[in-house]
Simulated scan of single mutants.
Amino acid sequence: MMQSHTLYPIGTPAQPWSAAERAQWLSRQQIRRSYADEVVSRLQASMPAAGVLVQYGELDYPSLGLPRYPLFAVRSRVWQPQRPTALITGGVHGYETSGVHGALQFIAEAFEVCSERLNLLVLPCISPWAYETINRWNPLTLDPNRHFYSASPAQEAAAAMACVAEYAPHVDLHIDLHETTNTDNSEFGPAKAARDGVAFDWHEIPDGFYLVGDTERAEPQFQHALIQAVAQVTHIAQPDKHGCLIGEPLQQHGVINNPKRQLGLCGGMSAARYVTTTEVYPDSPQATAEQCNRAQLATIVAAIDYLLRERA
């Protein structure tokens, strides 16, 4: 179903945005929650003994008059090269709340136990300005989750890639925590279409949890194991009448695939054998915020268990 260009209040139909429209978009954004209070303070208060808090960079947009945002990761205090390594990323899209809070919950509740068996690197909030303004984009109207490649123009993606290269150069498992929300159709999809001067390609929002594997590293048994684990916490999304989720054909129950490297997705930044992106639906009448966070946590723990079984 194709929607009209005129759904979005900025720009001229069929014309990509210029600097003026981008500035207009930025002027409409407001701080709606606190990265310092909700993310940084929680990290500092719940740091496990087996982890160390690392500042791996700082977001700085001086020409836009925005504050600087320190970027934090939690790394295993004792790093053992002979062990497998798991990378967990959250908040690439700052508005996807359970991606951030699921990562924080993992750090607080499961990091200590899991770190006894493997190396861990967790980046819980890659896009703090977007977290505060509840946005998909960064201040330059770039989607960080399309800019994970060399010489990235997105500071968020570039800093995250540099962090992984420095602290976890070999990754066996990568879980990237996301949500699919109703605002993907009401705000963020129309905004992207307006920015690019194209028609908005509407897709039904799936009601429930699903995973996005990598076309090049599908690992269907791995994906299946994660779906089984999450099904104990919340419901799994059913495909639409075309057998798709968000326009992508279903590969198995609750799983679709994307070419992550080709699209510049966060999940494509490492050579990990096992990689997946979670998609939680926080707007479902069948799920609570706590269930969404727990679904993210369940995915991470199940993925680590699967990796360790395969390496045994």
Score class of each variant (00 low, 15 high):
103 A>P: 05
39 V>E: 03
110 A>S: 15
184 D>T: 02
57 G>E: 06
180 T>A: 15
99 G>D: 00
163 C>I: 04
113 V>R: 14
167 Y>N: 08
170 H>A: 12
193 A>L: 04
167 Y>R: 10
95 Y>H: 11
97 T>K: 12
274 Y>D: 03
182 N>L: 13
58 E>Y: 10
176 D>T: 02
108 A>Y: 01
266 C>R: 00
175 I>L: 14
280 V>Y: 00
26 L>R: 07
152 S>L: 07
267 G>Q: 01
145 N>Y: 04
155 Q>T: 04
10 I>C: 07
276 T>P: 00
44 Q>I: 13
41 S>R: 14
186 S>C: 09
160 A>R: 02
62 P>H: 11
236 I>T: 03
75 R>P: 00
233 V>W: 02
111 F>D: 00
302 A>F: 04
176 D>F: 02
52 V>C: 11
52 V>I: 13
15 Q>V: 13
54 V>K: 09
62 P>N: 08
311 R>L: 11
163 C>V: 03
303 A>Q: 01
307 L>E: 01
176 D>L: 01
6 T>K: 15
19 A>F: 11
257 N>I: 11
107 I>C: 09
100 V>M: 04
292 C>S: 06
158 A>H: 07
179 E>K: 02
274 Y>R: 09
299 T>H: 06
70 P>Q: 06
275 V>K: 00
210 Y>Q: 05
193 A>P: 02
282 P>C: 04
20 A>V: 14
220 P>I: 08
33 R>E: 09
1 M>I: 13
285 P>D: 11
121 L>I: 08
281 Y>V: 07
204 E>N: 10
234 T>M: 15
7 L>D: 07
132 E>P: 02
156 E>V: 02
183 T>W: 09
108 A>Q: 14
14 A>S: 13
159 A>L: 12
187 E>H: 14
194 A>C: 10
130 A>C: 08
178 H>M: 05
291 Q>H: 05
285 P>K: 03
62 P>G: 06
36 A>L: 10
239 P>L: 03
234 T>N: 09
62 P>T: 08
78 V>H: 14
135 N>K: 12
266 C>K: 03
198 V>G: 07
164 V>C: 00
4 S>Y: 12
207 D>F: 04
177 L>H: 01
173 L>V: 09
95 Y>C: 11
243 G>A: 06
